[in-house]
């Protein structure tokens, strides 16, 4: 099931739950180096949780998450921080620091970790902002940016330290068609130009299938399908078809589990 070679991230037989609510029962997957891998699935299935498990922000109940062969959850804090300098995450909200401007947001990690002089940092930041088309917005505060621009500024910040992997958490959520098109193009181009490994968590089927090299689909606490976008489009798994074609009812029911409708309506009428 998993690709064993050239994988930057490997998840092996991982289970995770929040209290009594099981999120993953036993999942295994691998993220190939230098490729765009998409993790798809319905809302609330735990896609963001998966990114937090890869980043070591959450601990699995069992199983392993290996980053370049290192078990993320066996690291002490210093080792974990050393690993995180090699990864980057684009949060769904952008998560820009609202008390500093766009330039300082992008420069933040460089100032913390690179030890470079300010003149070099300035040039790097301007280059990153140019890459996402926001060099002109360097002096604006995050609150002065549109949602799409915030996402792009966050992307510039995410690539500032030139990480080996970027974890994208719902990058297209709430974006207008133009912003979405810009983000799709940026993710693909950055991945190709910098030889980045990208993990895109999303439920925007068309956009994701358009840029991903490999796709995993999560549902029912497990991986229900995986393959290239073309393989998934041709698959006859009804649960997968329902998700890809956006049908409201099917193996994933439209209705939340409830008692009999007629009985409930008529109850209490005595």
């Amino acid at each position: 099931m998993t690709q064993k070679h050239n994988s930057l991230v490997e998840i092996q037989n991982m289970a995770f739950s929040r209290g009594s609510h099981v999120i993953y029962e036993d999942i295994s997957l691998s993220i190939p180096t230098g490729k765009v891998t998409a993790i798809m699935g319905p809302s609330g299935i735990g896609k963001t949780t998966l990114l937090k498990l890869i980043g070591g922000q959450l601990n699995p109940d069992k199983g392993k998450v290996l980053f370049d062969g290192t078990d993320v959850h066996q690291c002490n804090r210093n080792e974990l921080f050393a690993l995180r300098k090699r990864m980057s995450m684009l949060f769904q909200s952008g998560a820009l620091f609202t008390d500093i401007n766009v330039f300082d947001n992008v420069a933040f990690a460089l100032r913390e970790h690179s030890g470079l002089p300010e003149a070099i940092i300035r040039r790097i930041v301007l280059m990153k902002l140019e890459a996402v088309g926001l060099r002109g917005a360097a002096k604006l505060m995050p609150t002065e940016l549109s949602g799409g621009m915030q996402r792009r500024a966050a992307l510039a910040r995410a690539i500032a330290l030139e990480p080996e992997i970027i974890l994208y958490d719902e990058p297209f959520a709430g974006q207008d068609p133009i912003s979405m098109g810009v983000l799709v193009k940026l993710i693909r181009e950055l991945s190709d130009a910098l030889n980045l490994t990208s993990v895109v968590v999303s439920h925007d089927v068309d956009e994701v299938l358009g840029i991903a090299d490999y796709v995993y689909v999560l549902a029912d606490k497990r991986i229900i399908a995986h393959g290239t976008p073309d393989e998934l489009r041709l698959a006859d798994n009804p649960q997968l078809k329902q998700f890809i074609e956006g049908e409201p009812d099917g193996p994933v029911p439209f209705h939340y589990p409830a008692p009999d409708y007629k009985k409930e309506l008529l109850s209490g009428l005595d």
């Binding site: 949060f91 620091f97 933040f108």
Partner: peptide, 14 residues
């Protein structure tokens, strides 16, 4: 709530 603390963690900043 805007994930700024999480983003600091992910940037290896305590």
């Amino acid at each position: 709530s805007t994930e700024q603390l999480s983003s600091l963690e992910m940037m290896a900043v305590d």
